[in-house]
Amino acid sequence: MRLLCTSIHPDIDSLEGKSIFKREATRAIALRGNSILLLYTERYHDYSLPGGGLDRGEDLLAGMIRELKEETGAKGISNISEFGIYEEYRPWYKSDFDIQHMISYCFTCSVDEELGETSLEHYELNNGMKPVWINIDEAIKHNEDTIKNSKKKGVSIEREIFLLRLIREEILEGE
């Protein structure tokens, strides 16, 4: 799978001599025209691609499908294709490691427009996470406004803006 971007958080001056926690995740890209299936998170006031961490030994596609179903209630998942990898290094918040190396494997797919029941985790519910179909340009503008104007922004918003812009450029404008 192609590498889309490697991002290093500005608080990290060097990776040398640091203990690094590797986390692998998947992200799902489901489009209907110019609408994209995203998760709106009230706590961070942002939109993000559905997805999350892989379970130990879990296959990439199985993990993507599981996360997509859990977070959005998506049904009729089909036409899955590789899109690319976004890797990032960011400070780790626990004392056991210095840095988190997050590797996000992104896939495009088709899903039914109507969503079913979600199976959100406790923290996701507490953060006010909900699936929405939204125009991709509205989502990009919203996230850009959040970066400029909100102190609540999450650590993944830069990744989300990068991916949404690339999706618009390569998939939607390429049609």
Score class of each variant (00 low, 15 high):
4 L>C: 05
5 C>K: 06
5 C>A: 14
10 P>M: 07
12 I>P: 06
12 I>Y: 06
14 S>C: 08
14 S>I: 07
16 E>W: 07
16 E>Y: 07
18 K>S: 07
18 K>Q: 14
19 S>A: 09
19 S>W: 10
22 K>T: 10
26 T>E: 09
26 T>H: 03
27 R>P: 02
28 A>D: 04
28 A>Q: 00
29 I>C: 04
29 I>R: 02
30 A>F: 02
31 L>V: 09
36 I>T: 01
37 L>W: 00
42 E>N: 09
42 E>K: 15
45 H>S: 10
45 H>A: 09
46 D>S: 09
48 S>E: 10
49 L>I: 05
51 G>L: 06
54 L>K: 01
55 D>W: 10
56 R>T: 12
57 G>K: 03
60 L>K: 04
60 L>P: 06
61 L>Y: 06
61 L>D: 01
62 A>V: 06
63 G>M: 00
66 R>P: 06
66 R>C: 04
67 E>G: 04
68 L>D: 00
73 G>I: 12
74 A>L: 05
75 K>S: 15
76 G>A: 08
78 S>N: 13
78 S>M: 12
82 E>T: 15
84 G>L: 02
84 G>V: 09
87 E>D: 08
88 E>M: 13
88 E>W: 03
89 Y>E: 13
91 P>E: 12
92 W>S: 11
92 W>I: 03
94 K>R: 15
95 S>W: 09
97 F>Q: 15
99 I>Q: 00
100 Q>T: 13
101 H>S: 05
102 M>F: 13
102 M>Y: 11
102 M>W: 04
103 I>Q: 11
105 Y>P: 00
106 C>P: 01
107 F>S: 01
111 V>N: 01
113 E>C: 07
113 E>V: 14
113 E>A: 13
114 E>W: 06
117 E>K: 13
121 E>Y: 06
123 Y>T: 09
124 E>Y: 04
126 N>G: 05
126 N>D: 15
127 N>S: 11
132 V>H: 01
133 W>G: 03
134 I>A: 04
134 I>H: 00
136 I>P: 00
137 D>G: 11
143 N>W: 03
143 N>Y: 02
143 N>P: 04
144 E>K: 08
144 E>W: 05
146 T>F: 03
150 S>C: 05
151 K>L: 13
151 K>M: 13
153 K>S: 10
155 V>H: 12
157 I>P: 01
160 E>C: 10
161 I>M: 05
162 F>P: 03
169 E>M: 06
170 E>T: 13
173 E>W: 07
174 G>S: 13
